[in-house]
Design a protein around this nucleic acid. Sequence first.
DNA 1: TTGAAAGCGCTAACAC
DNA 2: GTGTTAGCGCTTTCAA
Lengths: 327, 327
Amino acid sequence: MTTIRDVAKKANVSVATVSRVLNENGYVNEDTRKRVQEVIQELNYKPNAVARSLFKKESKTIGFIVPDITNPFFPALVRSVEDYINQKGFTIILSNSDENPEKEKHYLDIMKQKYVDGVIMVTNTLDHEQISTYSMPIVLLDRPIHADVPSVFVDNRLGGRLATEHLLKQGCQRIAHIKGPEKVINADDRYQGYLDVVGKLPWFSKQYIVSGNYDKNTAMEVTKKLLQNHPEIDGIFAGNDMMALGVLKAAEQLGIKVPEQLAIIGFDDIDLTEMTSPELSSVAQPVYEVGKKAAEMLIHLIEGKNLEKKQYIFDVELMERKSSKRL
Amino acid sequence: MTTIRDVAKKANVSVATVSRVLNENGYVNEDTRKRVQEVIQELNYKPNAVARSLFKKESKTIGFIVPDITNPFFPALVRSVEDYINQKGFTIILSNSDENPEKEKHYLDIMKQKYVDGVIMVTNTLDHEQISTYSMPIVLLDRPIHADVPSVFVDNRLGGRLATEHLLKQGCQRIAHIKGPEKVINADDRYQGYLDVVGKLPWFSKQYIVSGNYDKNTAMEVTKKLLQNHPEIDGIFAGNDMMALGVLKAAEQLGIKVPEQLAIIGFDDIDLTEMTSPELSSVAQPVYEVGKKAAEMLIHLIEGKNLEKKQYIFDVELMERKSSKRL
DNA sequence: TTGAAAGCGCTAACAC
DNA sequence: GTGTTAGCGCTTTCAA
């Protein structure tokens, strides 16, 4: 490894001068600047980021903690964040938490030790207090925790309403909901949206709500049972697309025609909604925008700027496809 | 931030002693050890990883460069690598290269500057020489470049053969192939496997081979044209699952029944093969094993151990599902 | 405009 | 067993 000393020696200047041309600050004679730059080229010198970090107490690295990158909702988010922060000169340390608070804390500790400049995370297990303990810029994605913690997410309740209203408009008479995990806030909001629309209807019953854990296989199992017990159900709003895929599968296995006998709509609008047959209706989140905004906020925070708002809530959009079209 | 000095001062010992208990090396009296540990607890002291890195010239971080995390094949790989290296005390810096050699080099530079201990990458644009320039442990995933560069991948040619033979056994008389991108080695190997099986058959024609760029939309377009020009085609081997999904879609749009009129098989066996209708046959890669092995090799290299083999080639497995079952 | 030197927080000789 | 100290590679006062 060639160091700043090597460059200094070869260019007949002090390390301070080299540092000055490197960072383009402080006065430096045009000629010596050129000479130094030539030597840098010649030696293919690349400054040591670790040494720099140690001094500056920053690393040009941010952490990104997701529950599980294997869940198709997250890669797009990661990509969007990377695209943004990368152009600002940052890199991402990625970790999977499995929604486990111990892992989350563990990774936050490690990231802090590595001087990451900030972290973006998707969590609902950590509370406001625990988060502020870390005293570093943190922005929450997808799931808000507290009005004081910077966060960006979508209007899940509205989404739940849109989805359910849509099914109603398509003529569904008995609409069930496959709900996400208990402790996940957005799952609850989507559920509330569903309630907003059908909770007061005469046919409504809590029996039409089952839990699918945001997971396709679980959703398939519970849906099969649900439909066997309640053959009158003619519409299902699944809390996310993975579960909607499970619902689709369940219908297929039971020989129920979609959308004729059963209209289905999911949430998130992940890429494969268009690959199923029939194509899956969904409530789309502006994933790329959401990720970008989170990245923007984090960079702002890191640069010590003030945030205009602590929370950004994006709108969702109904994507009507074949799985729910009966008209 | 509390430092090792703070701990030393409060525990009435030197920083060296604190360092000793921290790293569990060197002699240290049991009593003082306890005292130091208490202070560490009390102050919630966490050693500064950057300072440590600077001294040790290692960072307990590895780089992982993938073409695009948004491609559903990669998240599982990332996950598997993370699971392994994490338990060895490492974290991952993730970057998307978009198959762009400039980006790849850029990220490798940055990673090197950050003292990553090694990198795992999926590439086919960099050659042996360029890679060795970086003089740090690098292992290649999914696509081998050169026998001298440590790499792990699957027997793609065998996979191509298995897929094609399977279609033949199912009674297909005219089998087409949707090929991956030109420069991607595994795409070519899969294609070779296809040729091994049908290249010498009387009906064979180069017209049955089209390029789909590993992408579902492209694949859908080219497949539509292909099937319109060659209605005699009754079997398609797609170079990966995303393209197979496109083929499925194309068939649907043309009103061609799968598998009765057209048998389809993909490659990779990504998660959603089971979610389509009909379920998609595929050639499965042991993704988790592949990722794990790459991580293992990298850690070995980092620890200065010798590799038993430079290349690990995993077997693939035929997954027969509805999209290709005609018997 | 440039250089000398202190120091970021840690580890590992080396001395005691 | 424990402490002193040099040094990892860099940036930034401060002085010249």
